[in-house]
Design a binder for these strands. Structure first.
Lengths: 242, 242
DNA sequence: TGTACATCAGTGAACGCGCGTTCACTGATGTAC
DNA sequence: TGTACATCAGTGAACGCGCGTTCACTGATGTAC
């Protein structure tokens, strides 16, 4: 039964991360404390090093988990809406991000708040970090196929346009420059709104922040996926990308 | 010369804050260190307590200063543009915030990043916090007087509408619900974009983030101050608010 | 199936470090008559 | 103008605390023949 030790190990590893998450909720993302975790597990502090080589390693694991959880929440929400309803998909995904952020604010802040001082994110965090963004990009791709045009058409700077071309190449998408810029802007707007709600920026100004956020997101969606002024553009026949 | 001691005191107080700011740049906003400050000043650690009653007190002073600096940057930028050119004013103010944030990222993160664990902002920080927002609100007020209507007209939820009414009362502005919501959305979008740039969210995707930000802001401005579809609405005669 | 050996989880003590804050004090700077 | 007193900046020692990490170790769990 080689699996017994392995299973116990996996369980304890998970438990360490769970406790670290709870700690972050109390003390802030930068303040995980190996000794306190060991104490809570009834272990001696050095025992933690059987599971994580260092504090930074544990932090990396938490970041990867958080990115994955956010990405999964986005994917799950996206899957509940018919693929061609791009605006509804965006709304579903945006609200999923909002809910996730409100449910675990410290994990959200671990990803999008102040970087932890002295910590340099290793390669392992890059792939999970793109997971949520990929969901948004897929919606944008479908919107492009439907000929969507943003309500306010941006003028994409040449340097940025070149970057977008590389991005299309890399991701196998076919989103035009204007829509891509509008999409990125909506992305920053979405997370800006979430951050403001989380940090209480609307406190003593707006009481029902959930309602406010909801209307923010609806407005953003209509800005990006506004198709009324769209020139008649035939849908390309290439299949959907990953 | 009662002023000699007072002047030295003011200078040292300022120097403590300056050192604390530099420290934040290295170690993150949450990590100011009284002993290190004293060391750098060539003093004994307890001497700091002649100037600040506690670490939290120093933190409060830094937050107030940061809010004031951001507010002043916004006001200064706003003053460079003729009052009736609302879109240009917004652009100027947005870029001022961006520049300020890029020049002192740690101070920006002190205000808009992860809250410092265990620190509860006292009353003193509230007034300075509104200074920058007030600039935006004044621009919005002028825009309302000119009959501006957002490119995508939001549906303001009833609860939020009530809050907006109270806000109008409190600030002596006359910005309608739709424009107010669009304005707030632009506010979150602006700071979301700044935060993303600061935290390197566009790294290895877009190289010239300044250009990207510039176009973001132009797009946001046109979304808010879009007046083309505006119903003919006579400009009210009441004078400009504070 | 049983035995000899290797693996590995957890122990306990220690290292080196630094923090915020208090307190009784010294000595210089300012104030009032 | 000079003296007696009050104010206050800075000292130095101490308190109590906790952290991440290393290392030699014990003893239980798994493996190979």
């Amino acid at each position: 039964m080689t699996g017994v030790r392995a299973r116990v190990r996996a369980e304890l590893t998970a438990e360490i991360k769970t406790i670290a998450c709870r700690q972050m909720a109390d003390e802030g993302p930068a303040n995980i404390n190996l000794r306190a975790i060991a104490r809570e597990l009834g272990m001696v502090s050095s025992a933690i090093y059987r599971y994580f080589a260092s504090r930074d390693d544990l932090l990396t694991a938490l970041i990867v988990d958080a990115y994955d959880a956010l990405g999964e929440a986005g994917e799950a929400a996206d899957a509940t809406v018919p693929p061609h309803e791009v605006e509804a998909r965006f709304l579903a995904v945006a609200h999923a991000a909002y809910r996730w952020a409100r449910d675990q604010p410290s994990q959200y802040l671990l990803l999008f708040g102040t970087p932890v001082p002295g910590y340099a994110a290793p390669q392992d965090t890059i792939a999970p970090a793109t997971r949520f963004t990929t969901v948004l990009l897929r919606i944008l791709d479908e919107a492009a196929r439907q000929g969507a045009v943003p309500a306010v058409r941006p003028n994409v700077p040449v340097g940025v346009s070149a970057d977008f071309a590389a991005l299309r190449e890399l991701t196998g998408t076919d989103v035009g420059d204007e829509l891509m810029l509008a999409g990125m802007q909506s992305w920053t707007a979405l997370f800006g709104a979430i951050g403001f709600v989380l940090n209480g920026q609307f406190r003593s100004v707006v009481s029902d922040v959930d309602d406010l956020f909801g209307e923010f997101v609806r407005t953003i969606a209509r800005q990006v996926f506004h198709a009324v002024d769209a020139p008649a553009r035939p849908a390309p026949v290439r299949p959907a990308p990953v």
